[in-house]
């Protein structure tokens, strides 16, 4: 009888300990990043694997380093790349990448002899249909070059939606 009472009192005490811990955390600042009001800081995405992008060549930011050798196409386990060689020279005419199939394994990045591929850090990419995820990487490269306008290898960090302040994490 006495034993049971003591056990129950101890049990009640353990509940109070748990409640005090919860109470302490209730009063501490929040730990989550409230997307879309806040976004993750770009340095936290330094090695994040987003959709692929082409690396611009050293002399012209709108030109690709790709030599259309098809090594990436052969290495890809998901068959999500399509590279077609252009007329005259090695430069590709078509470079289509189906992000909806990609498993972000980096097999293409590692297979590329010209180091023409890398992962972007686009974490805010959204699409309504699968077709929108078939990305034309040559057009993407030209758009980036036009945007940068100078700075041969300017790699834009992940672009948060306009008007949002990145919140430092880690």
């Amino acid at each position: 009888m006495l034993r049971a009472i003591i056990d129950n009192l101890k049990g009640l005490y353990s509940l109070l300990v748990g409640l005090s811990i919860t109470g302490r955390f209730l009063l501490s600042p929040q730990r989550t990043v409230h997307y879309p009001r806040q976004v993750v800081a770009p340095e936290s995405l330094a090695s994040f694997r987003g959709p692929l992008e082409l690396v611009p060549s050293a002399d012209d930011p709108a030109k690709t380093r790709c030599i259309s050798c098809q090594m990436c196409v052969r290495a890809c386990p998901d068959n999500c790349l399509k590279v077609v060689k252009g007329e005259g020279g090695k430069a590709p005419a078509v470079w289509v990448y189906d992000f909806s199939l990609c498993c972000l394994c980096a097999a293409c990045v590692e297979a590329c002899p010209a180091s023409a591929l890398r992962f972007s850090h686009k974490v805010y990419l959204t699409a309504l249909t699968r077709d929108e995820l078939k990305l034309d990487l040559l057009a993407d490269l030209k758009a980036r070059a036009a945007k940068a306008a100078g700075g041969a290898d300017a790699r834009p960090p992940a672009q948060p939606p306009a008007g949002l302040e990145p919140q430092a994490r880690l």
Binding site: L12, S14, L15, V17, G18, I21
Partner: peptide
Amino acid sequence: RGLVTDNVI
């Protein structure tokens, strides 16, 4: 430990 392991429930 305080929050869960020792908890009587």
